[in-house]
């Protein structure tokens, strides 16, 4: 059990990074830090996949010197998965950053907790206005 720690250090690093990113995404109130957390989390998964695909002593599966035996090459599928995953996570981060910009323009802060408080205040003010209008409408 203990000895596998030394052979699987990439996986351990990946899982630690995943947890760091995950907690940042979940707990940080700052939206930009949340997005950084998201990217760290995704990068951790790509590290995990890349580590799984690599086999020590072998090269990238591109035939240049005529060797066709699979024993000479590493597994290319995880690399393909990582590339696809990067495309996905880039688009997700882009959308979240765009949303963050919109939110900043609207509320002048990046703190999600503060934004939620402001939203609550807006809502209460709106409700009070409707109730006041109604009272005035009745008395008139």
């Amino acid at each position: 059990m203990g000895s596998s720690i030394y052979t699987n250090y990439e996986e351990i690093a990946a899982v630690l990074l995943f947890v760091i990113g995950f907690l940042n995404l979940l707990i940080q109130p700052n939206l930009v830090k949340k997005i950084i957390g998201l990217d760290v989390m995704d990068a951790a998964i790509y590290l995990f996949l890349a580590a799984k695909g690599y086999i020590a002593g072998r090269t990238a599966p591109i035939v240049t010197d005529g060797i066709l035996s699979a024993d000479h090459y590493i597994n290319p599928i995880p690399a393909g998965l990582v590339l696809t995953g990067i495309v996905v996570s880039v688009s997700v981060s882009a959308v979240m950053m765009a949303l963050t910009i919109c939110l900043y323009r609207e509320y002048r802060t990046l703190d999600l907790d503060e934004i939620l408080v402001m939203l609550q205040e807006q809502e209460t003010a709106q409700l009070q206005r409707i109730q006041r209008d109604e009272r005035e409408g009745r008395s008139a």
């Binding site: 995404l25 979940l26 949303l99 963050t100 609207e106 999600l112 939203l119």
Partner: peptide, 20 residues
């Protein structure tokens, strides 16, 4: 509207946790 942006970002955060 600001309200929809807030709900969209909350949706995205929860969804990204799920997808991760």
């Amino acid at each position: 509207s600001g309200r929809n942006y807030v709900s969209a970002i909350r949706y995205m955060i929860m969804s990204q946790i799920g997808s991760g």
